[in-house]
Design a protein around this nucleic acid. Structure first.
Lengths: 222, 222
DNA sequence: CCTACCGATCGGTAGG
DNA sequence: CCTACCGATCGGTAGG
């Protein structure tokens, strides 16, 4: 499945009706199919780590191949270009973050303060949690994407930030947030996003501490 | 003066005692000296703008030469390597920012709130003001420096941030700042530094507005 | 996914 | 600061 535009790790047979009609006789496991999905994920993960550490332009496709245990030309079997690999990483990162944020918001208490706390905590998780390199790559390497790719990511970012808007509006109305909600959103997300630059996983501050401190810095709660 | 480690745009004759002793007979203007200082500054400015826009690795020395109206090999007459040029930009940016911040703090009212306001306003100026690309380059391209260069810049950053420490400590003691001062400093500077990512000079918000909004977001003033 | 390879580009240099 | 150039590297490809 080289260069497939299908997002799923497994090929979608329903896209080929004549095959979908054939309930048996099809090999249970197409040769290489599972492995290809795994290798694709693996490439995205090792590439994301390298991109985060050194920057997109400073990482060569040979670096990525070596880190994945492949030879130099092999990444191009899975991704047409280096830029497509970057886009796949960022897109997958945003889609996963949107989904997990949705789940977090759904299960959070209804009070705006609690929702904001859940959003901040989740955002820290996505930025600083173990094996979460995709969003930092988006934040700091997104400009290496083409204009059209950037436009697509901008849409995903809007979706991601959408739940923050009503929460901050409500807090501003309550008097708990003492700034224009739109500017406050940019400033708060900036404060959080910047943590990528200085946070050390084995340092003194936990993600819970960061969340508590951020909330008490930004909000006035009685 | 190719590749001189002297920071001043004019060569320091006092470093060559036998020349310093010769009050006349020395040509008023060494051939090319002034022009060299100007060209060096010019290179730093056009390079900084390009580095900020596209990132260090994505800008070629040919791009820089062309933007400065030179031919491809000429930047190397002024800077040994591309990396040295980046370092010169970041170092000069930090030194200038430290100096101007010092002046701002000295002339600010003594109350901690007012000092913080002056620091925030100055920081926005340095990040978003016209022709100030050097600090954004430090923030977002600093990792392209060598380890030793990074260590030197880290020292300058400590010097830059030093005036923030007692101010935030005092505000925390007053109850105007409701978070650990060290974490608050990282979060506040993060909120400001992130503005580089979204601020539009001709947009609705002025630097004064940003400063006011930031202060009222972070502080509880009676 | 490997092998062997290409064309383009890039940082940097020698000599003037 | 220009001219002419080099060696290395890099993204990407053809064919298997």
């Amino acid at each position: 499945m080289p260069h497939s535009s299908v997002r799923s790790p497994l090929p979608s047979f329903s896209a080929r009706p004549e095959l979908a009609k054939r309930p048996r006789g099809r090999p249970r496991k197409l040769p290489g199919t599972e492995a290809e999905g795994n290798r694709r994920q693996e490439l995205m993960q090792v590439a994301a780590r390298l991109f985060r550490q050194r920057g997109f332009d400073a990482v060569t496709t040979r670096d990525i191949a070596a880190a994945a245990g492949m030879h130099s030309g092999s990444p191009f079997y899975h991704f047409e270009t280096k830029g497509v690999l970057l886009f796949a990483i960022i897109q997958a990162g945003m889609q996963a973050a949107i989904a997990s944020q949705e789940a977090v918001v759904r299960s959070a208490p209804a009070a705006p303060v609690d929702t904001l706390r859940a959003l901040v905590r989740h955002h820290y998780e996505v930025l600083l949690g173990p094996d979460s390199d995709f969003i930092p790559v988006m934040l700091y390497e997104g400009r290496c994407l083409s204009t059209q790719q950037q436009a697509a990511i901008t849409e995903l970012r809007k979706t991601y930030e959408a739940p923050w808007v009503p929460v901050l509006d409500a807090l501003a109305k309550d008097g708990a947030l003492a700034a224009d909600p739109a500017l406050a959103r940019l400033m708060i997300l900036g404060a959080l996003n910047w943590s990528v630059q200085w946070f050390k996983p084995h340092g003194p501050a936990s993600l819970s501490t960061l969340t508590d401190q951020a909330l008490s810095l930004f909000l006035r709660t009685p």
